[in-house]
Write a protein that binds this DNA or RNA. Sequence first.
DNA 1: ACTTGGCACTTGGTCCCAGGGAGTGCTAAC
DNA 2: GTTAGCACTCCCTGGGACCAAGTGCCAAGT
Lengths: 338, 338
Amino acid sequence: MNEPRKLEVLRAIVEDYVHFREPVGSKALVDRHRLGVSSATIRNDMAALEDEGLIAAPHTSAGRVPTDKGYRVFVDHLADVRPLSAAEKRAIHTLLDGADDLDDVLERTVRLLSQLTNQVAVVQYPQLGRARVRHIEAVSLAPRQVLLVLIADSGSVEQRVHAVPEDVDRDRLAVLRDRLLSAAAGTPVALLDETLAAVVGLLPPGEQPLGAELARGLVLLAASSREERMVMAGTAYLARSTGDFLQSISPVLEALEEQVVLLRLLSEMAGDPRGVAVRIGRENSYDGLAETSVVATGYGLGDGPKIGVLGPTRMDYPATMAAVRAVARYLSKILAGS
Amino acid sequence: MNEPRKLEVLRAIVEDYVHFREPVGSKALVDRHRLGVSSATIRNDMAALEDEGLIAAPHTSAGRVPTDKGYRVFVDHLADVRPLSAAEKRAIHTLLDGADDLDDVLERTVRLLSQLTNQVAVVQYPQLGRARVRHIEAVSLAPRQVLLVLIADSGSVEQRVHAVPEDVDRDRLAVLRDRLLSAAAGTPVALLDETLAAVVGLLPPGEQPLGAELARGLVLLAASSREERMVMAGTAYLARSTGDFLQSISPVLEALEEQVVLLRLLSEMAGDPRGVAVRIGRENSYDGLAETSVVATGYGLGDGPKIGVLGPTRMDYPATMAAVRAVARYLSKILAGS
DNA sequence: ACTTGGCACTTGGTCCCAGGGAGTGCTAAC
DNA sequence: GTTAGCACTCCCTGGGACCAAGTGCCAAGT
């Protein structure tokens, strides 16, 4: 058995199936690809591929369709991430330049990615956890209400009104805030807890309860934002990838609303050597996504927040991977610059 | 012709069609409702209703289906808003109590409404425009970067980092902020523009450029938040209302993503005497929503932000209207209390 | 003036059947 | 290891018959 050719056949099947959206047979294969052998030979190869579980036939006399495992082999061994076209690169630049806010940047990014891939795109907000504290603010609104603001060097700003047990005036609050800020500035948000606890211990006894309460509020703030939000766009594409896929659109929409599910999914996705991680069909532990693939990668520093695309397993992996990677890179650049 | 009975027939048709999701014929009608007359009589009534454009037949030998106009008459003259069941009321209380944040409240509310109606629910954020300024904060982050925070008595907090043309130190900024705040506190956010302009004029000449810049930033902040956000939940229900409706799910999803469209739609919706506004099918100017109805009402004070539900024209209007109204009332109460 | 039973008519849905097409697996020969 | 040929399987399509549901209308009844 000719191993390289067999893989070539798999590639051809995947490409044709993605393109024409219907099972592909041996004859069509030799017609459309220069495989240099006859359809009978291809049939033998296909039988072997089927034995290995890489392709499957919906019924006896239909062509073959790639299985999740088949896509996996395709993605791992056969797909080269196709570079974007010049027009696409231009689109990225024009759409993303001129955004101001972090919110605005993410919003535009996710729309862009969705349009590039014709699929649902999601992007995770930068995690405060990995960022460092840039600024802390505490403003007294009412006698026992304090507005706490936590600003990270990732550019994100979190704020919440926090109730405190005793009345505080402006000046007292300002002093406390300065103490907390000078201790916390520059420390990773993830360590805010210990850092603040240490400072509170050094406060004059009379100030300790209030200080502790403020510290608690700030830590809560950091935690509640680490419990992550995300933005998404392009849900309409789900409905447009009609056909058999349509029955399963409802669970997918549910998954998209259950942000917790999605967030876990994204954070589980380890980057592969080429920098883009792919989860195919049932590889996603979540049942509602059994017929969907997720292509994602991190952006920003380190193994940061994720950005990705979600679509039917029958998707154009090389193109999608390229788009995700390109957009993630550009996004990283923008965030680093601002 | 017996007018009251004709309307009764219309009601029966609407109810049955909503219930069984298939065209309803004269015979089925007399079987399921105590109309007291024979099917032939009903046929005559139905012919009349069809002449008036209130119902239509998909094809010659099918039953009749209400038209948009038919639903309109039903909603205006035949539907009494059915009170919620005790269980539903309990659900509202348990789900909404215990929310802290404004974000959290709205999030829970929209989920709740979606579950109550089995449809897509949307809620608009409170508009800063109608609220009054409670607090203004300006924090210098870097030499030429100031974090501006605007807090309204509606409970909403808007913040953004704003670039200023000259270096500012803490104290100078604090003085400026106090001037701005004391002038603006209590004025409607919508009038922030003029109010601040007046104060800036009274500043010492050296402070005017900076003051003007801060004022500009605050006005921008107010404006950008008035340009409104919204939360939604239950998109999965769209897909579940399967059938002929499914083709049109894609435009609906698009409309939901185009928040601008939705926001305009909601704000156009004038309350009707019973306090809940209904837009049926093509009454929505937006094409993508030609087969969807929107049931909405305002919450909070006056003709405030809107909360509503969106689903197929073939929906249970009385139940939906009741749910929307009940949830809106409870939401108002919660927001007023906090 | 309504209401009603009866009846002819229309039409979509379903079931069945046959034919065609696409594709496969296998075998035997190259 | 490759290829041609062939029998076989199975889906899809279209046509035809049939049925059920529903209508519109008319003539008769109240």
